[in-house]
Design a protein around this nucleic acid. Structure first.
Lengths: 154, 154
DNA sequence: TAGAAACGTCAACATGGCTGACGCATTTAT
DNA sequence: ATAAATGCGTCAGCCATGTTGACGTTTCTA
C-alpha cells in the first residue's frame, strides 16, 4: 500500500522543537563568541579544525558547505587572532593544512563546554535508552553525504 | 558529589549531529522558498502565524526573538505577496493581528510537507519508543521560556 | 612545458539581523 | 479632558555571513 505520511500535527511537533532547540544550543556559544568579537562562522571553523586535529582547506570547505570566499574571510580573521595556523601540505604544496594554536584549542574547548550542560541535561531528559534514539534520529535527519563527516556515537 | 560532566567526545557527537541535521532540515524548505523568491525568515513567520491561526504582532515578535524592524520587513514582503494579512485587534486598536491568506496557508503547508519525509524517516530510525525520547530531548534543549510556545507532542 | 588544480584575493551584491530615532494612533492614568 | 504610555510602522545606517564572477599565483601532472 502507499506510504501514509505522518500527520501535519506530528510534523509540526518536531519542526518547532528543532527550531527552538537549535536556537538555544547555538545561543550558548554565541554569547561566548560575542565577548571575543567572533561569530558563529568562526565557531564552526574552529570546531571542525579541532575535531580533525588538522584538516585540508578543501575538506573544511566541503564540510561547512560554503564558498571558499566566505571561508577565506573567516580564516583570515582567525589567523589574525592567532587562533588558527595554515601551513602547506608537504606532499602537495598547493594544498593548505589548517591547525589550531594553543589559544584556538582553548577557545574551542570553552565553546564546547558552554554547550555541554544543556546537551547533558537534554540527554538525561531523553532517558537512559533515549540517547541511542536521539543519535539515530539526528543521523537520519542529516544529508547522507554528511554522515561520513561525523564520529561514531558510542 | 560534584556533577561529573559528560565527556567532550559525547558532547561533540551531539553537537555535530545537531549541526548537520538542522542544516538538512532547513535545506528542504529553503529550496521551495528560493523558487518563490522568499527566505527562511519568511518561512518562520508563515509557520508561527499558521500554527496560531491568528497571532498578535507582539507575540510573533516574542516567538521569533527578533526586533520589530527585522519582522516589519519580512511582514511587508509577505503582505505584498498576498500571503499574510494584518487587521486590527477590535479590543485594542493599537494591536495588530496577523493571519494567513489562502495562498499563505497553501505555501506554509507545502513548506511543511517538504520537510515531512525527512522527519518521518528520522523518527523511524529512532525506533518505536524513540519518538518520545526525541521529543523530550529537543524540549529539554530549548530555553525554558520557549517551552510554552510549542504544542504537546502527543 | 603546457595545462590543470588548489588556493588567495578583490569586487559587488543579497539576506537577515541589529540600533537609534521619529511619528502616529490608541489606550490608560491623572 | 488631557497628558502620558503603549504598540506599532518606518527611515537610516550598520554588521555578519553568505553568494557570483573574475583574476593571479604557485604547484603538480600529463
Amino acid at each position: 500500500m502507499a506510504d501514509a505520511f505522518m500527520s501535519d500535527f506530528a510534523t509540526r511537533a518536531i519542526a518547532e522543537r528543532l527550531f527552538f532547540g537549535y536556537r538555544a544550543f547555538t545561543g550558548d556559544a554565541d554569547r561566548v563568541l560575542a565577548s571575543r568579537g567572533l561569530g558563529r562562522a568562526h565557531h564552526r571553523a574552529l570546531y571542525f579544525i579541532e575535531r580533525a586535529g588538522s584538516i585540508p582547506v578543501h575538506e573544511l570547505l566541503a564540510t561547512l558547505g560554503i564558498t571558499k570566499q566566505a571561508l577565506t574571510r573567516v580564516l583570515r580573521e582567525l589567523m589574525e587572532a592567532r587562533l588558527v595556523e595554515r601551513r602547506r601540505d608537504p606532499t602537495d604544496g598547493r594544498r593548505g593544512i589548517l591547525t589550531l594554536t594553543d589559544a584556538g584549542r582553548a577557545l574551542e574547548l570553552s565553546l564546547l563546554h558552554a554547550q555541554r550542560a544543556r546537551i547533558e541535561s537534554a540527554l538525561q531528559h531523553a532517558g537512559p535508552s533515549g540517547s541511542a534514539a536521539v543519535h539515530a534520529f539526528l543521523e537520519a535527519l542529516m544529508e547522507p553525504g554528511d554522515r561520513e563527516r561525523i564520529g561514531t556515537s558510542l
